[in-house]
């Protein structure tokens, strides 16, 4: 225990993480878009995607993770998510409906499009916020 090894030197962890992260992200997308059919949706997908980044950060260190996904992106992504959601609502208003009245988006599949759009917004916002939270807390700990 005296000799501290860096985490990323542990081969199992490193390989495991490298192997897992893409799959987790894939899974997140699955949850995102399968939310209409099974459990899940934007929020859950967002958290899972964030978990992928968290895992990456845990194994390879915060700096490496921040090189992949910089903090400023997350900050903006957080805002973009809300804007996508709200933008959908504004779009429906511009098309003559009430706020978030998806039926005006498309005469037949309006509800589908609307739900996909807002779920995407939720997903983006949650991914970015959760990852950002991890970054901020972990960064403080480093001093």
């Amino acid at each position: 225990m005296k000799q501290h090894m860096r985490m990323q030197d542990k081969i199992i962890l490193r390989l495991g993480a490298k192997f897992l992260v893409p799959f987790i992200l894939l899974f997140a997308f699955y949850v995102q878009f399968h939310g209409d059919f099974g459990p899940g949706g934007g929020f859950q997908a967002g958290v899972i995607a964030a978990a992928a980044f968290v895992l990456y950060g845990l194994i390879f260190g915060l700096d490496t993770a921040q090189k992949v996904v910089p903090k400023s992106w997350l900050e903006k992504g957080m805002a973009i998510g809300v804007l996508v959601y709200g933008g959908t609502g504004v779009a429906t208003m511009l098309l003559g409906g009430n706020f978030l009245e998806y039926d005006v988006l498309h005469h037949h599949n309006g509800q589908h499009y609307g739900i996909i759009a807002v779920e995407a917004g939720v997903g983006i916002a949650v991914t970015c916020t959760m990852t950002l939270l991890y970054y901020l807390f972990a960064e403080r700990g480093r001093r």
Binding site: G35, D36, F37, G38, P39, G41, L100, Y102, Q111, H112, G114, I115, V118, E119
Partner: peptide
């Protein structure tokens, strides 16, 4: 509207 997950429908629409 052919969205099986009722929770999603209520939640998002």
């Amino acid at each position: 509207i052919h969205i099986p997950n009722v929770v999603t429908t209520v939640l998002a629409s």
